[in-house]
């Protein structure tokens, strides 16, 4: 059965290659299908990847199908299962956490479908990975806080952490990075570490209470820009937004990131630029499909560099606009 499937795929690939060659060179991906399972469409990261990829690769003939599980791991798993039986040429998956899709990703690779993971590594290694290093982002945020609040900076050293859901993997890794930096430092004191569940209202309430308790709070590290606007609102109301540093991270979409950096809402912004990621993804997809890289062969890995944006280095093109790609 498996052999038969392999032969089929091989012949399909061969046919595709032949026809690809026969056709004009401007459609090298004609007849290929990419299936994308995000955590959910409808927010800047996934919309960015999806639309940029469409703009980039569809003219080359690639067909992109997307299954939107709307934040449900179980639905996502089901979508993966049905995609595996549909056998796309490449499967692009944004893991909700490290292990939920692990078994399914291995199954996909075993059936000969190369899997490209984005922004969150599963415990199973697959053909390709593109994405931010969450631990690195955590580290960068903590280092930024240390620089502004630690010894020699004149800050009080008190910082507050506003996490995502405690069980969310990206939140856990950011926390891990922060802990690595703060480990053994006694000039920085974490006065509050609370989960706001990606909800700005909760972030606002938490930060509000913490600010009242600690008049000399130096910095707030918020784990996602979408929720950090809540923390920012609390800071603005109580301190006029000045003497408390707000550090956050995100996918660098114009309204979510640069607008807020420009108006002083966010002080430091760690970015894993979706635009760069999309370029990486497109490149890897091309490579996998045209060079016929099979699962189990070469491993492709593009970790997105973490950069810091603040009011000083903000440029007009620091962010991307979703509207440019739709």
């Amino acid at each position: 059965m498996k052999n038969k499937a392999r032969t089929l795929i091989a012949s399909a690939v061969a046919v595709a290659c032949l026809s690809g060659n026969a056709l004009a060179d401007d459609k090298p991906l004609a007849g290929k299908t990419l299936a994308f399972v995000p955590t959910s469409l409808g927010y800047d990261l996934t919309d960015g990847w999806y639309n940029m990829l469409k703009k980039e690769l569809e003219p080359e003939g690639l067909e992109i199908i997307v299954r939107d599980p709307n934040w449900s791991t179980a639905t996502g798993a089901q979508a993966l299962v049905s995609l595996i039986s549909q056998k796309p040429d490449i499967l692009m998956v944004q893991n909700p956490d490290v292990q939920s899709y692990a078994r399914l990703l291995r199954r996909a690779e075993n059936e000969g479908i190369p899997v490209l993971q984005i922004n969150m590594r599963s415990s199973v290694e697959t053909t390709a990975f593109v994405g931010a290093d969450w631990v690195g982002i955590g580290k960068a945020m903590a280092e930024s806080a240390v620089a502004s609040c630690g010894d020699g900076s004149g800050g009080s050293g008190k910082i507050s952490l506003v996490q995502g859901p405690l069980t969310s993997a990206s939140s856990v890794y950011q926390m891990q990075g922060i802990n690595e930096v703060l480990e053994g430092r006694d000039d920085i004191r974490v006065v509050s570490s609370q989960a706001a569940n990606w909800d700005p209202s909760q972030a606002r309430a938490i930060t509000d209470t913490v600010l009242k308790q600690h008049a000399d709070l130096c910095a707030v590290i918020d784990f996602w820009d979408g929720q950090a606007v809540g923390s920012a609102a609390a800071i603005r109301r109580q301190r006029g937004g000045e003497d408390v540093l707000l550090i956050t991270n995100g996918g660098t979409e114009q309204t979510a990131a640069c607008d807020n950096i420009a108006n002083g809402t966010f002080d430091k912004y760690m970015t894993y630029n979706v635009r760069e990621q999309s370029t990486d993804i497109a490149e890897l997809v091309r490579k996998i499909l045209t060079e016929d890289i099979r699962p189990g062969g070469e491993r492709l890995d593009r970790t997105t560099a973490v950069r810091v944006i603040d009011a000083d280095n903000l440029r007009d093109d620091s962010c991307w606009k979703l509207s440019d790609y739709k």
């Binding site: 990606w198 700005p200 209202s201 809540g230 809402t265």
Partner: peptide, 9 residues
Amino acid sequence: SVDSMNTRI
């Protein structure tokens, strides 16, 4: 109060 509306709630 939070300068945004999050439909995920």
